[in-house]
Structure formats: C-alpha cells, structure tokens
Amino acid sequence: MAVHAGDGIFFEIISEGLANGVSDDGSVVVGENNSGGFVWTLDGLEEIGGVAAIAADADGSFITGDRSFPSGDTAARYVAGGGWTEFGGLGSSGCDSSLSSAYDISSDGQRCVGLGWDGCAANAFLWSEAEGMFELPRIGPSATRADTISGDGTIIGGWDQASNGFRRAAVWFENAKTGEWDETLVLEGTFGNPEGYGEVNGSNGDGSILVGSADGTSDATSGGFMYLADDGVVNIGLLPPEQFPYVGGALDVTEDGRAIVGFQREGFGGGQAFRATYWTPETGLVDLKEHLNELGAGIPAEFTLAAAQSISDDGTVISGWGYEGLFFFQDAWVVILPGGEPEPCPGDLNGDGRVDGGDLGLLLAAWGTNDPAADLNEDGDVNGADLGLLLAFWGECP
C-alpha cells in the first residue's frame, strides 16, 4: 500500500482490487479484493465478506454488493454491524452460477437495483425491504439492467437491449400517483444516435442529472454524456485517442452536476490502455491523473488511474481502480481533494456527529486505561486531559 500527498490533495492506494463506490458524503469507499467486499475510511480498511461491495448509501450505513452461495451468486445488502441480507433471483433458478448482481443503492439504503436472472433471461430489478425484488418493465425484446438509482430512489438508469443486441440508454421513472414504473430511452432520436445506443451509469440525488456512455455514429456523438431533465442531452465526449479502437463514458456525477468522472479504454486484448477521466464546465474533459498532478498530487508516473468509478456529492472524494504495469493486476485507489477531508471532532466517541453525554459515558468507562478510542490526546492514558478536550468540543460536530 502506498500513500502520496501534495498541496492538500490526498491520494492512497487502499487495497489490491477495485474501489467501486463512494458514499454520498464521501466518508466511506467500498470495493472488492481477493478476500471479498471491503469498506475503507480514513481509519483504515475493513473486510465485510461477500464477493464484492458495490455501492454505499449516504454515509455507508447500508451497502449493496454480491454474496456467493451453493445455489448461486446473489445481490445482497449489508448493514454496518448487522451483516448481509441476500436478495436471490427473479425466478426459481438463475443462469449458471448467478442469481442476481447488485449495482447501486439509494441514499437511505432502502432500495437497491441491479441485474436479476430468471433462468437465463436477464432483467433489471428493484429491491426494497418492504417489497423484495421485482422486475422493471422493458421496451425491447431482450435483456435489461439497472446500473444506478437516484438518491431519493425514484429514478433508475441502465440499459435496454434492442433486437440487434445493442444496448440503449434507459431510464425508469416511478409514477408518484400509481407507484408503477415507466421506462423511456433517453438518447433515442438524438442527433447522431437515432436509436439511442448507450447506457446510463450514474445519477444525482433526485435524478434530475444522469450520466452515461453513448455509442453514436461519430466521435462527436459517442463517449460520455449528461442528461438534464430540463435541458436534454449534453455531450461530454472522448479524450483524443492514442490508439484504436477506443470507447469511453461517464460513470458518476456530483449533486450539482458540475463534476463528472469516468473512463476511456483504448486498444486490443493485453495491449489495452485505460485512462480515468474528469469533466467540469471549466476544465472540459481531461485525463484525471494529469489533472491531479498539475494540482500537485504527485501520483507516481508508473501508476495508471484506469477508471474513476464514483465521486461524492460535493465532488471532493473520488475512487476507482488502476494498475502498475499490466491492467490485469488491479489496485483500488481514493483521492480526497482540498476541502474534502472530514472535519476533526475530538470527543465524538460514538460517531453520531455530536459530543454529548453518550461520549462522556464512554470516556468515563475507559478512565485510567490506555484505550486509544478515548485517549484523545494520545498520551497513553485516559484521564483529565482527555476529559478537558471532550468538554471543549461539546455540542454538534463542525
């Protein structure tokens, strides 16, 4: 594990494997390595089992991911301190060893979306604790998949496969009156992409901003896009390619839509090259590693940021995967931009966002010990000095 910092930018390779998602508030990164799912915070890495942790809710209290069972791999939800709940599949059997796969979770952790199997028929699903798993409607004759859900749980994005096998960018809207879900193809009929080929990968809190990958008839209508509920499609595009063929897209977006992260892949087979991408109205689409190093991040030349998978609501925390040498050997990474480091709150021993009687009780219970959680001044002894610090921060955390 390597850590590099420069000019207020925090960069860390947090594990081998993939970093798949960031909580809305940026405090938690989730991913997968050879041991299964993991959760990363500034306090370190925690393994939570399962096959993979894919996405987190507002603050990491709920996580969606995948679990493995003799009957097949299944999408599931993890509750911090409470373990996993498995969803199963859409039918009585799955396809080969898979019943379902998770892709995203709402901000309150109560709705999850992904790909479910009914036999070997693949369908987008929505899961909730109250209703369980059910299939979302489809326009095309073949497969669908749900890749993202808005923070409020009312908009779902993904793809709907056409009869020719191409994916079309799809969005499902919850009808507030009936509770039913309606589907639309958001790129269909757009200039240079009349069939609407592509997929929706990310959403902001209320679904008014969606991002994804377009597959139009030219570079000008391919690559990343942003869909605005009020203004339609905005092309993000592609970086100038260094080799052929090449594809790219947008994977996630901030709450206000002013920062978008994604990827670009170029070349064939083992010679493929990847680049994580970053877009703002001010920078346009840029290579994320080059952009961060221009700001002083000091990311080593030999390490490639391959894909930026997720970004926090405020745009200060970005996570993804990369590699040194060949892309087969992947590492999970996180970047925290200036202003993104959590404000210190000494004395908040139970992590509820305020210093109060609950924290005082925990400190007194550890009195006279060397418990590091209560040893606020880190002198090896929980005593009056620590009590003074706790009282100095009494009240709401900054």
Results as ranks from 00 to 15, higher is better:
Met1Asp: 11
Gly8Met: 03
Glu12Ile: 01
Leu18Met: 13
Ala19Phe: 06
Val22Pro: 00
Gly37Glu: 12
Val39Cys: 04
Val39Gln: 02
Gly44Pro: 04
Gly44Gln: 12
Leu45Glu: 02
Glu47Asp: 14
Gly50Lys: 00
Ile54Leu: 07
Asp57Glu: 07
Gly65Lys: 04
Ser68Ile: 12
Phe69Ile: 10
Trp84Tyr: 00
Gly94Phe: 14
Ser97Leu: 09
Ser98Glu: 11
Ala102Phe: 11
Arg111Glu: 04
Gly114Ser: 15
Trp117Asn: 09
Ala124Arg: 08
Trp127Leu: 04
Ala130Phe: 05
Pro137Cys: 09
Arg145Asn: 04
Asp147Phe: 13
Gly153Asn: 08
Arg167Ile: 02
Phe173Asp: 14
Trp181Gln: 08
Asp182Thr: 10
Leu185Asp: 05
Thr190Cys: 02
Phe191Trp: 08
Tyr197Val: 01
Tyr197His: 14
Ser213His: 07
Ser213Tyr: 05
Ala214Tyr: 05
Asp215Met: 03
Thr217Met: 11
Gly223Asn: 04
Ala229Cys: 01
Ile236Lys: 07
Ile236Arg: 10
Gly237Ser: 12
Phe244Trp: 13
Ala250Lys: 04
Glu255Lys: 02
Arg258Met: 15
Arg258Ser: 14
Arg258Glu: 15
Ala259Pro: 06
Leu292Glu: 02
Ala297Lys: 00
Ile299Phe: 04
Ser310Phe: 07
Val317Thr: 15
Trp321Tyr: 15
Tyr323Met: 06
Leu326Lys: 02
Ile336Arg: 14
Pro338Cys: 01
Gly339Lys: 02
Cys345Lys: 09
Leu362Phe: 03
Leu364Val: 15
Asp375Val: 12
Leu387Asn: 04
Leu389Arg: 14
Trp394Ser: 03
Cys397Gly: 00
